Simulated scan of single mutants.
Amino acid sequence: MMKVLHIGKQGNLQRFASADGFLSSLDLVDLKPGLPLAEYLSQAGDADFIIVDAITTIPGELIRQMPNLLAIHSEGVAFNAIDLKAADECGVYVCNAQGMNAMAVAEQTILLMVGMLRNVVVNDAAVRAGYQIEAKGAYMQNANLLELADCSVGLIGFGDIARQTARLLKAYQVKNIYYYKRHRLDPAQERRYGVQYRNLDDLLAQSQIVSLHLPVTKATRHMADQAFFAKMQPGSYLVNTARGELVDDAALIEALKSGRLAMAGLDTLDHEPVLKDHPLLNQPQSIASRLLFSPHIGGITAASFYRGYAMIDEDLRLVAQGQKTKRVVNHPQNY
């Protein structure tokens, strides 16, 4: 019987993997992250597969001491904590569950967009304080509540999540959906998703809502800086459901103070886990009321986990059969 070492939240495999799938046929060793290397080796050094949560490190030292290891599969999309060089050298596939949470994060993106346009932070507080009719009356008098279809939306990055977001925006009848990526789509794909290409500066200038959909790299870390915000429309909106490190917190605060940004909707912040001393949590009410937070939950719906484990099941079954997996992210030798 082949063996799988799961390093992550214990019980995930039993909960989310199909009962009649390939994974259920494996001898499971289910261990939590952060144990000494010797513990993993003593209990599962002969394992054929590792399934690991998306943020736990799999060092080369572990990979090199597992002689039967065929594949390492991330439970999520991220795989940067796995030593790819060691896996390449040992002929071990590294795979991720690309696209597993695309719809979930896209929904969270839309939620934050609509939540900002309807100012749910302030309006929830108004109702709780007994000022429901006053809040409603002010909006009726000013006639300034926007629908999503009133806005142009710019998507920076156009991977799986941004593509699902574009589909949802079309359902909301958004007419101008702009996108920026390093390599432009062909015209047929642009028509398919209902999007228009813009270079980054033009996208920032023409979009009332800007949504980030990029990984963190040396080039993208703190890309939303003072210069970035200066190129946006006055009174525009920022959404980040990607990675907190994309945004320079000090520049974001300044953009809110100056009115360059009306609001920011953030599912992820720099320096997670977010504690009470985080700078974005210690702003005056004039700024705090224009920040809409969610606790980095965009991609962790139950459906996402089931989709992810279906991908893992398929990939590891193919590897066991001596075939190339669909979602390999490295270049293992001898394959």
Rank of each mutant, 00 (worst) to 15 (best):
K3E: 05
V4M: 11
V4S: 08
L5A: 08
H6C: 10
K9Y: 14
K9M: 13
K9H: 15
N12L: 08
R15L: 05
L23K: 03
S25Y: 07
L26N: 07
D30K: 13
L31T: 13
P33L: 03
P33E: 06
G34P: 13
L35R: 11
A38P: 11
E39I: 11
Y40F: 00
Y40S: 01
A44Q: 02
G45P: 09
D46H: 01
D46V: 00
A47V: 01
F49D: 00
T56R: 12
I58P: 06
G60F: 02
E61N: 15
I63G: 06
Q65R: 15
L69W: 06
L70G: 10
A71E: 05
H73R: 12
H73A: 10
H73S: 14
E75W: 13
A78L: 08
F79W: 07
N80M: 03
I82T: 10
A86G: 06
C90Q: 15
G91C: 06
G91K: 09
V92A: 07
V92M: 08
C95F: 01
N96C: 04
N96R: 10
A97M: 10
Q98G: 15
Q98R: 15
G99V: 11
N101V: 04
N101K: 03
A102R: 10
T109M: 09
I110Q: 11
M113K: 11
R118D: 00
R118C: 01
N123G: 05
D124H: 15
D124Y: 15
A125Q: 14
A126V: 13
A126L: 15
V127D: 08
A129D: 12
A129N: 15
G130Q: 09
Q132N: 13
E134F: 13
A135W: 15
K136A: 09
K136R: 14
Y139Q: 12
N144L: 01
N144V: 05
E147V: 13
C151I: 04
V153E: 13
F158W: 05
G159V: 07
A171L: 12
Y178I: 00
Y179T: 04
R182M: 04
R182A: 05
R184S: 02
P187F: 02
R192L: 14
Y193P: 11
G194T: 03
G194P: 10
V195A: 06
L200K: 00
L204H: 07
L212F: 01
M223Y: 02
A224G: 08
D225C: 14
Q233K: 12
G235W: 15
Y237M: 11
L246Q: 12
L246D: 03
V247G: 10
D248I: 04
I253R: 10
I253W: 12
L256T: 13
S258Q: 08
S258C: 04
L261E: 06
A264E: 03
G265L: 05
T268P: 04
D270V: 03
V274K: 03
V274G: 02
L275A: 10
H278D: 07
P279G: 01
P279R: 07
S286F: 04
I287S: 08
R290P: 04
L292S: 02
I300V: 15
T301R: 01
A302Y: 14
F305S: 05
M311A: 04
I312C: 06
D313C: 06
Q323F: 05
K324E: 09
Y335E: 13
